[in-house]
Nucleic acid binder design. Sequence first.
DNA 1: CAGCGCACATGACAAACGTCATACGGTGAC
DNA 2: GTCACCGTATGACGTTTGTCATGTGCGCTG
Lengths: 206, 206
Amino acid sequence: MTTARPLRVLLADDEHLIRGALAALLALEEDLVVVAEAASGPEALAMALAHRPDVAVLDLQMPGADGVKVATSLRAELPDCRTMIVTSHGRPGHLKRALAAGVRGFVPKTVSARRLAEIIRTVHAGNRYVDPELAADAISAGDSPLTAREAEVLELAADGAPVAEIAERASLSQGTVRNYLSSAASKIGAENRHTAVRLARERGWV
Amino acid sequence: MTTARPLRVLLADDEHLIRGALAALLALEEDLVVVAEAASGPEALAMALAHRPDVAVLDLQMPGADGVKVATSLRAELPDCRTMIVTSHGRPGHLKRALAAGVRGFVPKTVSARRLAEIIRTVHAGNRYVDPELAADAISAGDSPLTAREAEVLELAADGAPVAEIAERASLSQGTVRNYLSSAASKIGAENRHTAVRLARERGWV
DNA sequence: CAGCGCACATGACAAACGTCATACGGTGAC
DNA sequence: GTCACCGTATGACGTTTGTCATGTGCGCTG
């Protein structure tokens, strides 16, 4: 059993420093081999199709397309490839999106390389792994109490646009927009739409 | 000249994965030795005092105290130790703050490890190094047109607090607060304080 | 089918906000 | 020593928001 076929890994992260360092560390693991690296979402996708890795380790924030988008495409185009997300900022919403996209591993960058290698093996074996802390956050954040429209309007309000502009962009009357913003804010427990936007962001509801 | 005293490096980054990987890569450089690692601002400070490194490589965002704060303290307590900042999100304002704190190197995490090693040597030699792209951003963002008070009030407005609360926290009258917010927004070219906050953030003015 | 929740709307009122004029004391520059 | 700019303040004005009541129509679900 010493000559098992090595586990082929794709590494995608826009930070060269991290990516290179990670590749070096994973190379120390005998059963892992990094077959491709990418610095952007589209590049990750292209690399995956070219090299057909067993596991794709994706950074959440990358130029072009974020980790979850890449995972979604990968699921369609390369179903045998397991995907996992590594991230610095673990927002509850991201985790939820990721799991919905078929991602099987979700870990913060605070883990050690050894641990990451273990998790890569876990994921490859067909199991899932979600960082317990992030999972707890996601659960405690709960599901969004917002209706689809409320969320949409809140999102349009995100950059501080006045009601008139939001109304126009959403093709709604100004009164309706105010109603939605008001009910969204009260559901969230914020005193005004701006704090509502911030809180919704933090909880991954927008 | 082969047995020169090695260059002693302190590594501070809250992401274990990155920090470990970085340490491993820097260890490949013959003339560098990582003498200490830290995962938070205070820890970095303590480690520096205990191990007296030649160069401290600090992540910008860390729990406890950010890289710039650590650099400031270090400058006072360990003047011989050069400091440099490594960061993922290079906002213009951070660079300015960092240079003011006596930081001698400022690089994004997109550089390669080899390059980082070179820069560590540059910094140790007493020179400065600032990533050209970040420098260009900082220059094009220009200086803040805001007065000290305007910036302060704008910062208090950052989380969407109403004027009354800002006034209380700044010990100002509500009218004054509104005046400041109004003039700050007009200087920035924003239509209201919320977009003003956002733009000021992007330009590193708060 | 009756009831419920949602999308969407209107009108009205109070509170918050943005803007402007005006004022006065302090500080630094010329 | 005047001039300009800043910090601070007030009062007044119109506009934008937040909130509420109320209404219509639609699609589920019991």
